Amino acid sequence: MSILDRYILGKYLGTFILLLLLFIPIGITVNLAEKIDKILANEVPFIEVAKYYWDFTIYFANLLFPLFLFLSVIWFTSKMANNTEVIAILSSGVSYYRYLRPYMIGATIVCGGALIMGMYLAPVASKGFNEFSYQYLKKGKKDRISSHVYRQINDNDYIYVSYFNVGQKSGNNFTLEHFEGNELTYKIAARSIRFNEADSTYSLYGYQKRLIGEDSDIIQKSPKIDTTFAFELEDLTPVEYIAETLNYTELNSFIEREKAKGSSYINRYQVVQYKRWSLPVSAYILTIIAVAVSSVKRRGGMGVNLAIGIAIGMIFIFFDKIFGTMAEQSDFSPFVATWFPNFIFAILAVYLLNNAKR
């Protein structure tokens, strides 16, 4: 590795880490100022608050690292351009691609770190962050999907509940359909269902069971019946943020099980799955854009480059959020939603890079 590589790589990683160290305490301070009333009102132990802000740090560092990286590259490259270091490097016979090499080495290091964090560290932090939020900061708010839950629980049984109250462990309009092959053999329906935690049974109110016969059906009715089922309470009320709390291996297995169960939330889980790859890869794209924008010495100085960088970074985050939401709330492809911002900005990166070379 040459002196040029070490010099630029040191600035690349050093500025990125410095920016993280500067912004994370600011984020913690702002969040604490907003949440301090609820923390004190709920008498949250100090150790729990400390764990929460450790998880908060990892969670948001993983979420916002592309923006921090983008701004850090613009910052130190603009400073080099203002000091005419970039002109000196390129005038010495170094090609633009050779000049870009240490940036790509730095992007590879950051991408590798982001992959490890996103695949294994961030899921643990996400679990702690969300559980603390719903236990202490969002009391009374739902952390589970509880409306219009339709799921396949095994090869033969399908369940549906129109609404399930997590706190009371009861729901409305419950049905269970049992198939043998492609034939419906019986269907259980109930006006309401309640989970009995003491013995893990279910109480069905307004119970009706229809046995499907070749010539006629047999209907069994009862005001109330206690029974057991081959599904857990979590099948009726899946946690909204469950995908965020699983490492990559667990997430892949979870999605396969959810597909087998006929879950209607597959898109939401797949958005999380694909983002584990798309966000780290964005390090390369944003680095190229940042170098192309900030390597030119401008009359307005670093301020102009930073303004351009912040605008591009905000647009990237906007695209990422809007397409992710589209995939979660519709039939829009999760793969396209998560990779489309990278694709668009990769085209922008090529365009800006060609202009910068000239």
Rank of each mutant, 00 (worst) to 15 (best):
N156Y: 10
G140H: 12
D199E: 12
Y120I: 06
L137W: 05
V110L: 14
F195P: 10
T185S: 09
T108F: 15
K169V: 00
I219G: 08
A122F: 01
A230E: 11
I109L: 13
N172F: 13
G213Q: 10
F129K: 13
N172Y: 14
Q168D: 13
P223A: 07
T201H: 09
K169I: 02
S192M: 06
Y205N: 04
D235N: 13
F174Q: 07
I116F: 15
I219K: 07
Y186N: 15
P238A: 00
K209M: 15
K139G: 02
K209D: 01
N156M: 09
Y160W: 12
K142I: 06
A125H: 08
G113T: 03
R191T: 13
Q152L: 09
N154Y: 07
F129S: 07
R144S: 12
E197A: 14
D235K: 09
F132H: 05
K127C: 00
F195V: 04
F164K: 09
T108V: 11
A189H: 05
K209W: 04
P238R: 00
S170G: 10
Q220E: 09
G118I: 03
K224Q: 14
K209G: 00
S203K: 05
A125S: 14
G113A: 09
A114K: 01
I219H: 02
I109S: 03
C111H: 11
Y160R: 03
V110E: 03
Y163I: 04
D199K: 08
I219D: 07
Q168M: 12
N173D: 15
Q152P: 00
F229H: 03
I153S: 09
V124A: 11
I193M: 15
Q152Y: 01
G171P: 10
R191H: 09
L211Q: 13
V161M: 08
D215Q: 14
I145C: 00
Y207L: 01
L121M: 13
I153T: 14
T185F: 12
E232L: 12
G118A: 05
Y150M: 11
I153G: 06
R191A: 10
L233Y: 02
N154D: 15
I153Q: 06
V124T: 07
V110P: 03
P238H: 01
Q168H: 07
D143Q: 12
T108R: 10
D157Y: 07
M119R: 01
G140L: 05
I212L: 11
E131N: 12
